[in-house]
């Protein structure tokens, strides 16, 4: 999912003595494999993850770890492990969100004789956690300013360099130094700002929004058209900030109850974007995502009250990239015309 893979690899490779296999990058083959074996009207992340699981099993892994909860995500692993068993693979799949984690992990370690360097755990846990935080803050800066870059590709190259340096870093303070160094570098990159800046907010379902393959590289495409982006959903938001903010959302929206998964957050963010003079909103989700379907009319209603244009995408394996691009281009042209 996005760039987070290297952090998980970094954490596990430093804590475990065993070999760790990175899943291959998601391609159209992954999706094809996944949808071949999954039920008809399940949401698309199921197909992506199943495809990835099959590919990593073929690379020779024994233990697969999955995290997720909230809506259907928490139940993925049970059906997926049944499907994979029926295909004849031998493995162990665990889900780490639905409670009982300590017991599950202890049993796993015993069963598979894993070699864990316990003394390293706290240190690397801290480093990995801060790494996620730093990566997210850098990425949101990139998203906001990449569209104005003078030299094409300078932001992407710098980010790649930063990730490479993150990988070889083994101390908390050194990590902080690297982060500060790169933040300065990012800020000193030359920008050409046009007279009228177009700002667009991206909201939606968490997997589709964070995995570049699943949304056809939406962010890069919009940045190339000179549109500055803001996105609220990222891993550090989901893991650490979300819980704290629910009460604030409810109070602000004058609602009584939460609405499941990211639904409430998306309504709040729509309102936030409308009130802070953003020029447009893009809502992106995988098809059949139940919580998002129900709130789409509400989001549309709020946006039309503030007269902010909004574009809905529902991504499936059959969504054609050309059709996607056409709609996106039309939306961007419309935003530009509105500005004039």
């Amino acid at each position: 999912m996005g760039n987070y893979g290297f952090i998980v690899h970094y954490f596990l490779s430093n804590v475990l003595k065993d070999e760790i296999i990175d899943p291959p990058k998601i391609t159209s083959k992954t999706l094809e494999l996944g949808s071949k074996y999954s039920p008809d009207f399940v949401c698309t992340p199921f197909k992506y993850t199943l495809g990835t699981l099959i590919e990593s099993l073929e690379c020779g892994s024994d233990i697969l770890i999955q995290m997720g909860g909230g809506c259907r995500y928490g139940y993925y692993h049970e059906l997926q492990s049944q499907i994979l068993k029926d295909l004849g693979y031998k493995f162990k799949l665990i889900n780490l969100i639905n409670g009982g984690n300590h017991i599950k992990l202890k049993k796993l370690i015993k069963d598979y004789n894993l070699h864990i360097r316990y003394y390293r755990l706290p240190k690397y846990y801290l480093i990995a956690k801060t790494m996620v935080k730093y990566l997210d803050s850098i990425e949101s800066y990139v998203r906001k300013n990449r569209c104005y870059e003078k030299e094409k590709g300078s932001f992407n190259n710098l980010e790649e360099k930063m990730i490479n340096e993150f990988k070889s870093c083994h101390s908390y303070f050194k990590l902080r130094k690297i982060y500060q160094k790169y933040l300065k570098k990012f800020k000193s990159l030359q920008l050409i700002k046009p007279k009228q800046e177009i700002k667009v907010g991206i909201i939606g379902e968490l997997y589709t929004i964070m995995e570049p393959y699943a949304n056809y590289n939406l962010e890069q495409k919009l940045n190339d058209k000179g549109i500055s982006l803001i996105r609220f959903t990222n891993v550090s938001y989901l893991l650490y900030e979300k819980k704290r903010k629910v009460k604030k959302f409810l109070k602000n929206l004058k609602l009584k109850y939460r609405m499941g998964a990211d639904a409430l957050d998306n309504i709040y963010h729509t309102k936030y974007l409308c009130e802070n003079d953003y020029d447009g909103i893009i809502h992106i989700k995988s098809s059949f995502c139940t919580p998002e379907i129900l709130i789409m009319p509400i989001i549309e209603d709020i946006a039309s009250k503030y007269e902010v244009p909004i574009l809905f995408f529902s991504m499936d394996m059959n969504t054609s990239e050309t059709g996607f691009e056409t709609r996106l281009e039309a939306f961007c042209d419309m935003l530009e015309m509105r500005k004039k």
Partner: peptide, 20 residues
Amino acid sequence: DDYNQTCTNFLAIYQYVLHF
């Protein structure tokens, strides 16, 4: 309770009707 949840539509439909 935590092991007896329901579909996400069940918990959002009231808010939906309230809005419209």
